[in-house]
Amino acid sequence: MALAEIRALTKSFKKGGETVVPLDGVDLDIEKGDFISMMGPSGTGKSTLLNAVAGIDRPDSGTITVGGTEVTKLSRSKLADWRAEHLGYIFQTHNLVPVLTAYENIELPTLLVSMSKAERRERVELALEAVSLTDRADHYPRQLSGGQEQRVGIARAIVMNPTLVVGDEPTGSLDAATSVQIQELLVRLNEELGMTILMVTHDAEVANLATRRLRLEGGKLIELNGRAANTGNGRKAITAG
């Protein structure tokens, strides 16, 4: 069984008189260690799909099962608990809480799950280290650069070592140089920490980092060849093991 199974997912919106159908029976299996990028024209429904997988939006029909839990069945509160433990969300803009320091922002998800103070501390420090911001722990978001803010946002997404990390255009609002930093970081999370990532992007270069590349069009997903398949370097096997 795949880590995540998406079956016959549909979602439509009524817009004035007409109905938009961004998801029209989407099927997808995500394996542990996958680094998936999703592209597609603007307005096709990439964010809609991602948000459904993240459990912050509900599909009209179909099921999403992650790690054996059918998230489409959970109540609002249970869904929140599930996200706290199993999901990391990387936003396009960092969305940090401005009154909390980098450390405190990263600590937030750990406050939702019962654990010792020491463990909490250790997790936050590991996450800070993973995004190379240990020396900025006590800085407030306004004291950080855009790239640093985004890295804090990523640290917050991975601090609970989630089952699945999703990102909606995580490099979408960064300049080219900063974007490269974040790209390298994402690859490192996948390769070194074995994180499973599902990411929406408009940038073909970013999409090419992924081990699997998807395209959403006409309400359906089309699988393209990922980098691993292209280069045949066995990268997927390494991360999966």
């Binding site: 993240a54 912050i56 609002r76 509160s77 929140a80 608990d81 599930w82 996200r83 706290a84 433990e85 999901l87 969300y89 936003f91 969305n95 809480v97 937030l108 998800p109 939702l112 917050r156």
Partner: peptide
């Protein structure tokens, strides 16, 4: 509004 939505995305319960 957005900050509360972010908190909920992280896993903070509505309650």
């Amino acid at each position: 509004v957005k900050e509360h939505a972010v908190l909920q995305t992280i896993g903070v319960r509505p309650g």
